[in-house]
Design a binder for these strands. Structure first.
Length: 366
DNA sequence: AAGTCGGGGGA
DNA sequence: TCCCCAGACTT
């Protein structure tokens, strides 16, 4: 027996947890069946994302891309559109890459061997364990934030759950709990417990089906666990963006590059403004240098603040008009507001889009 | 091991 | 405000 588990009656723990799960579990779209593709998509969407946020995205995604083939052959623009607003966009680009491999190398069948499935793009240790256990009933641990929180408390483990080493410790513990149960049920039950009862703050210990097994509860330290080092505050970036119109009234949008922040999403042309520089000056120089454009920059029409996990954008939006020829507009498109729905924008630039739509609607009344 | 990569909602 | 969420990838 693993040393961390010697004081736990594993069999009784399993019974108590699974009984609770049977009559408490939520009906979620990805629990309709155990189809591996559906489970996989749901697990990618659920990374760092709450269940309630995911549900509408999942339903839409399954409507548009019901099978691995549908996703593999889908237009990248439509795939990005399906993910618009969900964040961590590399998830969906990796997913499409991986699904292409499944179609080409595995005949469209999601591999059930750990070695094969884990090698797919975007499939890390958690996702591999989750899909293999939930779809294929493999006794694999699926250690996410919920699992580390629950078992930190059950076993009174005080390691920092932000460290990779700690996740491995839990992965070493979990196999004992996966004996003599349906792995699909057990793994989901722990996550459900973490989501509904064993919450980060004010855990509902009085309602907890495994409270009698909980070492943290016995010692009254459940609120202190799990241990997690807090990360530093995000740094702010000053930006200038432009709603740039041509003589036809079309607006210029730019597609971001393959890598980095918000990769492959569309945006209004923008540039970082170093401290002590005037935004209009930096902006017109940027447009001239980047696109070979002569523009007339108007006044500031909007301020947008957008907070990322590690970064803050303070965007001042200007309106502007092209007065000369636009020489180099690679990765750009002139679009009308009606066409905007075809492109995926980050939320920060959706805010700019919304104001433009309001202004256009107002014009209609004048 | 530490940084990067989104966005939202709960307390 | 702060925290963190069914994490993976890059450096």
């Amino acid at each position: 027996m693993h040393q961390d588990v010697e004081n736990i009656d594993v069999s009784k723990f399993q019974d108590n947890l699974l009984d609770w799960y049977q009559h408490t579990k939520r009906e979620l779209p990805w629990r309709k069946n155990q189809d591996a593709y559906r489970v996989w998509v749901s697990e990618i969407m659920l990374q760092q994302t709450k269940v309630d946020t995911v549900i509408p995205y999942f339903n839409q995604f399954m409507e548009w891309f019901p099978t691995p083939e549908d996703l593999a052959y889908a237009d990248e623009e439509k795939v990005m559109k399906a993910w618009e607003g969900l964040g961590y966009y590399s998830r969906v680009r990796n997913l499409q890459t991986a699904v292409k491999e499944v179609v080409e190398e595995y005949g469209g069948e999601v591999p059930s061997e750990k070695k094969h499935f884990s090698s797919l793009k975007g499939v890390g240790p958690y996702t591999a364990g989750a899909v293999l256990s939930i779809a294929y009933e493999k006794p694999e641990p699926a250690v996410d934030g919920n699992v580390m929180r629950v078992f930190s408390r059950i076993l009174n483990i005080t390691d920092d759950i932000g460290k990779a080493k700690t996740r491995k410790r839990f992965e070493a513990i979990l196999p004992e709990f996966l004996e003599d149960v349906r792995p699909s049920e057990f793994n989901q039950a722990v996550m459900e417990l973490g989501a509904l009862i064993c919450t980060p703050k004010s855990p509902g210990c009085l309602l907890c089906p495994v409270q009698q097994h909980c070492e943290a509860r016995k010692q009254g330290v459940q609120e202190e666990l799990p241990i997690k080092e807090k990360k530093k505050a995000p740094t702010a970036k000053e930006m200038a963006a432009v709603v740039l119109k041509n003589e036809k009234g079309q607006i210029l949008i730019h597609q971001r590059g393959e890598k980095g922040l918000l990769a492959r999403l569309w945006e209004f042309p923008n540039v970082e403004v170093p401290a002590k520089h005037s935004r209009p000056d930096v902006l017109s120089e940027f447009l001239s240098k980047e696109y070979g454009m002569t523009v007339e920059v108007g006044s500031s029409i909007q301020k947008v603040q957008h907070v990322f996990s590690h970064l803050i954008w303070n965007i001042t939006v200007f309106e502007a008009w092209v007065t000369g020829a636009a020489e180099r507009i690679e990765d750009c498109k002139w679009m009308t507001l009606e066409e905007a729905g075809h492109y995926a924008f980050p939320v920060s630039h959706q805010k700019i889009l919304e104001l433009q739509k309001e202004r256009e609607a107002d014009d209609g009344w004048i």
